[in-house]
Amino acid sequence: MTDQTFPIRCQNLWKIYGPAPSALRTVPVGTLNEEALRATGHMAALRDVTLEIGRGEVFVIMGLSGSGKSTLVRCMTGLVEATRGDLLIDGENLRTTRPERLVDIRRHKISMVFQDFALLPHLTVLGNIAFPLKVQGVERSERERRAAELIDVVGLSGRENRFPHELSGGQQQRVGIARSLITKPEIWFLDEPFSALDPLIRQEMQDELLRLQATLHKTIVFITHDFDEAIRIADRIAIMHNGAVVQVDTPEGLVLSPADDYVAAFTRKIPRHLVLRARSILSPVSAEASGEPVPADALVGDVAARVLSSEAPVPVVGENGLVVGSLERSSVMTAMFGATA
């Protein structure tokens, strides 16, 4: 696999906090177990994380607080230096990158959206959005022109001259999003961007993000502790627990084959029809099946109404248009209401 397809690669990444983490760079990995670390007063925030994130992918890192997800994304952006292992951004190893090059990468290739928005209180909406360009020394008229374009994109037209404290939380994060997009980054880090917002606004912002991504096609690394949010936007999800990545899979994969009890407990309460696709609850091709066929990769939730209102099973077709099976009412009911239905 080339780095062309995987702009971000983590290889055996460790982040250890404590009195002398650098001494642990060279010891054998086997000695880095929890008891040994604790005995010397160390704590591993990341344990041996290896993953690859594909170009144009929406990759969600999901875990409870203290699971290491924030540390991981800070290692990916170079805000925190990893203790062991490598982190490659488009093939460049952040461990060996010179500081000037790192500044360059941050100015042009990657950008970040913060949980608490991190807007500058003394700048207007326009000034905040244009801020990264100001840092780069872009001329005022040019940066304000580009900021004005983005204001339209994130739906803040007419509020250019407001100050952050005059905006609602959702509007503030729209400013944060616009600011992070103004440098036209290829990789976009969002660190729990919607966690501080009301549930209704949060959903609106998730839709907004998907709408933006449909036109931008960025590589997105999205951090959240909210599984519902993760399955709404993710192509793939990495679940973290105690600093380690427990499983990386599509939402459907996580639900159908959880790697361990921890993941299973996480996914148990998820309404399955929101993650399962028709293909996963397929019955064999049935002669009784009738009516308009549904595609195999459709979400069960999207076709449930059709199946439930039809007397007969509904035929399912693959990508080539051939019938690959049928959907039974009972299996849709099971997917929607659980095994007991």
Partner: peptide, 20 residues
Amino acid sequence: SASDLATMAGCTSRQSMWLV
């Protein structure tokens, strides 16, 4: 997040102090 923002925007240390 304030200093993170400065770093992520690619500020030099002087820019980080006086602008952010």
